[in-house]
């Protein structure tokens, strides 16, 4: 287990970045569900959707812990990238859940209306802007950090980037080695076959 100081320095930067930035917004209480669907591959305009999922969605989830946020990704290379916002009636839901409290059955909020946001060929900031407009969410902001903390966060992010670059380099080298070995084996096999024939 690393020391608490080392652990906390990284944690402090991480937690600040999950509370602030694009995507840090409090949704109104009549939203129950935020469903994303896009491809695994980022070709054909799915990069913005992926960026939104990686950067903005954790912040949205932190500020709206009760909103369900399922993400479905398909193996296709083309197709739509959409976000569906499900609205529900909080008062009716409360009545229903209180009535069902005795039976201890899980109650799902009933969707009254939905809003679709197209994420194809767009930047994640644009998608976030449209979400805030369509749902009239309030943007969350914190007073800025001290210069020391800012510096520390920048240093840690740079360090992390370097570590990841090193890791990916090793991974790429490993993949290349494996493919080279396989090709060499295939060459040997083909030469043997040609000799025998």
């Amino acid at each position: 287990m690393p020391s608490p100081t080392a652990r906390y320095r990284w944690l402090r930067a991480q937690l600040h970045s999950i509370r602030n930035g694009t995507g840090a917004a409090v949704l109104p209480p009549n939203i129950s569900r935020l469903a994303l669907s896009f491809n695994y591959k980022t070709a054909n305009g799915h990069m913005g959707a992926k960026k939104f999922f990686r950067e903005c969605l954790p912040r949205l989830k932190y500020h709206n812990p009760n909103v369900d946020m399922p993400v479905t990704r398909s193996n296709a290379t083309e197709g739509p990238a959409t976000m569906t916002v499900h609205f529900f009636d909080p008062e009716a839901f409360e009545k229903l859940s209180q009535a069902k409290k005795k039976t201890q059955a899980q109650v799902q909020p009933e969707t009254v209306s939905t809003v679709e946001i197209n994420m194809l060929n767009r930047f994640s900031e644009d998608i976030m802007k449209e979400l805030i407009e369509k749902t009239s969410a309030t943007v969350y902001s914190e007073p800025p950090r001290s210069a020391e903390l800012e510096e520390e966060a920048a240093y840690l992010a740079k360090k992390r980037e370097g570590e990841l670059a090193e890791k990916y380099k090793l991974q790429r080298a490993g993949r290349k080695r494996v493919t080279n070995e396989l090709e060499a084996q295939a060459d040997i096999l083909s030469s043997i076959q040609s000799q025998s024939s």
């Binding site: 906390y8 999950i18 954790p58 912040r59």
Partner: peptide, 18 residues
């Protein structure tokens, strides 16, 4: 710093979204 269980869970769920 120490975290209450609910706070830790709220952060963890945000990191694990999707």
């Amino acid at each position: 710093p120490k975290f209450a269980l609910m706070d830790a869970i709220r952060y963890i769920r945000a990191f694990e979204v999707g």
